[in-house]
């Protein structure tokens, strides 16, 4: 999985009907030292992630392994909202600070 920050959302009324009533969020990819990369992904939200949340998303066929995205044309799904992470004991990101 990769980590990214929710920086926007996508509204598309005319789209493949299999993607109907799915929340599409724009995620900017961050690296492990929490530096934003110039790389964006549109991912289906399956855990109720909000704006500016740091999230974990899965890509590829694994993204279809949720009750919500099963057999749907989706290759990126947000599967967790990150509280914090550390590298070798040093806190790199904390949601509450």
């Amino acid at each position: 999985m990769l980590i990214g920050k929710v920086v926007g959302s996508v509204v598309a009324t005319r789209k493949d009907e299999k993607l109907a009533n799915q929340k599409l969020l724009v995620v900017q990819v961050h690296d492990h030292s929490n530096k934003p990369k110039d790389q964006y992904v549109v991912a289906v939200d399956s855990v109720g992630a909000g704006h500016e949340d740091m999230v974990l998303y899965a890509t590829g066929s694994s993204a279809r392994q949720t009750t919500q995205t099963e057999n749907r044309p989706c290759d990126a799904v947000i599967m967790a909202v990150v509280d914090s992470w550390d590298l070798g004991g040093a806190n790199v990101y904390e949601k509450w600070s």
Binding site: H32, S46, V47, L56, A80, V81, V82, D83, S84, W85
Partner: peptide, 23 residues
């Protein structure tokens, strides 16, 4: 393994599964 990730709000089937940063 280079770090640990804490994410309590996650997909239901993944409760109790530890997450780590991996290089």
């Amino acid at each position: 393994v280079i770090g640990r990730v804490v994410a309590t709000q996650r997909y239901a089937g993944l409760t109790g599964v530890p997450l780590h940063w991996l290089q």
